[in-house]
Write a protein that binds this DNA or RNA. Structure first.
Lengths: 346, 346
DNA sequence: ATGAAAGCGCTAACAG
DNA sequence: CTGTTAGCGCTTTCAT
């Protein structure tokens, strides 16, 4: 089916393309009768102006590129939801770029998004979550950001001036730890993720700091590393339970909800009651957290707000308005049923 | 920062734009020395050809529009993952259009995608899941599909010739029901979704049919309707448990996993052990299903395959190759820990 | 092997 | 109020 253009409409209406363009964009007054004649033709032919041609000229596409490491991980759809709800009324459409955390794919997408002339980029995951990101990878991002407005969500590239929106994970971990301590827990384990990620580093540091401030020791055996998955949570919890060299911890802080859910499963399987025998805290508060039984106590990161704020910042960047470089979202500890005051047994 | 164009590269290299275009696309032989000179300039300026201009000319954008009703519902990221993995190597990028199940937004996106000249559309959710879809809504889709290759995923618009890829939900429901019956269950309830959705209708019909075939009655009180959410599952399970007019069913078939998870929670809270006191089957097999305790027996719909097959069909449509109008994905019953053989107590 | 020039469909001066 | 025209950045004949 041949694409109908503004020329077809114009000639059929007996006017010039300029006039058609004018009614299309309401960019100048058009005689009512001409206008309605044109409108009729537009309806009749189901004419939709070619956005490529328009964008080519206007140098704006109304499109935002959203880079995520794994859309299958509930964290990111939640953020995306926030992005969408904040940007759709501004008329933006989204390229969803799923990188699978692969740096090469990130690079490719950065290129593609430039070619496609997106108005802005929201970058999540992958290289911006590394405790130490290789210089070339940083450079790439910086160079793209020099040409296209960009905001990093929940990540960082130290040494750069990139705009960021992030949850205060360190504070969240501190809150959770302090809460557990106040519930009477003294022997708390930390089930972490990859040690080369900044999120793991931050949470672990905060955990240790708060334990310290409370005069509580953290044995080396109490720090476990995994890969942020449910099965890692299961495996690590099993490890903890099998360690017969010491009594089991009365509480566990997990690096994210997946890990916590896995840990809970392993515990229940081993006949340990949650929260009676052991308290468990997750991180992120993805929908899963309140879906399981017992409902998970978790540090809510307000993923939707993360998305919404990212759009705010990005939009200002696009409009060349002034924005502050860093936006912090306050986390919130959501206490549910997986944690409990410790009844000292002696 | 001024966008650098093919003209800048050309003039700086002392050649014509045609030559630059040729090295860019490898579309005709270029003298090695010229080529390398150009390449160098491209690298140096970080030149990326403007895809809009190219697409305007070529009449293809390498972009697919993916319409989903709710990216926050794990079902859709899974499908999207399949789409992505099948299409990215073909060089496609994706517009993710989240409609929130709102028909107006669906219409808008259909328009936007046409304007943006996408090469194809994958349509999920909303109007294509209605048991009876209003004619105007059907028309819109048909008209779009007349201009842009489109495939409907897990939905249908009866009376149209649109291409579809769908899981056999009816069969899935039949399998699950038959399985429960074979486990000795005779009093089975069905916790459904909205009665105006085709998915609910299909599953319910299959459920009743199989019960019938086994000579088992289905009391009216055993069919409950909700809205596919966890809280509906909770509420409906409570309702079932509070009905003192009859013994509680020994098994429950749920319209989806969310509902099942909610039902399980309500049951556990009421002191009912799953699966010992009651068997529960979910539908879809989203990741959540295997995350909870007890792990949920569920009808796996192979969401990723749904996505992959949709891309296959769409790609052939785009290439104007022949494709069959309907692709069925076989469901699979995944038996886990939420179901159990019924031990008759009398 | 390379260049000149004609568009792709649209918008935005500039005239009238 | 409306028409003419010059591009936006790129690809592609058609020459050379």
């Amino acid at each position: 089916m041949k694409q109908v253009t503004i020329y077809d409409i114009a000639s059929e209406a007996g006017v010039s393309v300029a006039t058609v363009s004018r009614v299309l964009n309401n960019t100048a007054p058009v005689k009512a009768s001409t206008r309605s004649k044109i409108m009729k033709l537009i309806k009749q032919h189901q004419f939709q102006p070619n956005a490529l041609a328009r964008s080519l000229l206007k140098k704006e596409t109304g499109t935002i590129g959203v880079i995520v490491p794994d859309i299958t991980n509930p964290f990111f759809p939640e953020v995306f939801g926030g992005i969408d709800s904040a940007a759709r009324d501004k008329g933006f459409t989204f390229f969803l770029c799923d990188t699978l955390g692969d740096y090469d794919r990130e690079s490719q997408y950065l290129d593609i998004l430039r070619k496609k002339q997106v108005d802005g980029i929201i970058f999540m995951g992958g290289r911006i979550n590394l405790a130490k990101c290789p210089t070339e990878l940083v450079e790439e991002v910086v160079e793209t950001a020099a040409r296209i407005p960009m905001v990093l969500v929940n990540g960082n590239l130290p040494g750069t001036e990139l705009h960021r929106v992030a949850a205060d994970e360190s504070k969240g971990a501190a809150m959770a730890t302090q809460y557990l301590v106040e519930q009477g827990h003294r022997d708390i384990a930390f089930i972490g993720g990859h040690d080369y990620t900044s999120t793991n580093a931050q949470k672990l540091r905060a955990f240790k700091r708060v334990m310290n401030q409370n005069g509580l020791p953290v044995a080396k055996e109490r720090i476990l590393y995994g890969d942020f998955t449910m099965s890692a949570g299961e495996r690590l919890m099993k490890e903890i339970l099998q360690d017969s060299s010491r009594p089991r911890p009365t509480a566990v802080l997990c690096v994210n909800d997946f890990t916590a859910v896995g840990a809970i499963k392993a515990a229940i399987r081993a006949g340990i009651f949650i929260p009676d025998d052991m308290s468990i805290v997750g991180f992120d508060d993805i929908p899963l957290a309140s879906a399981i039984y017992p409902e998970l106590t978790s540090v809510k990161l307000h993923m939707d707000q993360l998305g919404r704020n990212a759009v705010d910042v990005l939009h200002k960047l696009i409009m060349k308005e002034k924005v502050k470089r860093m936006t912090i979202i306050e986390p919130e500890l959501v206490v549910r049923d997986s944690t409990k005051k410790l009844i000292h047994r002696e």
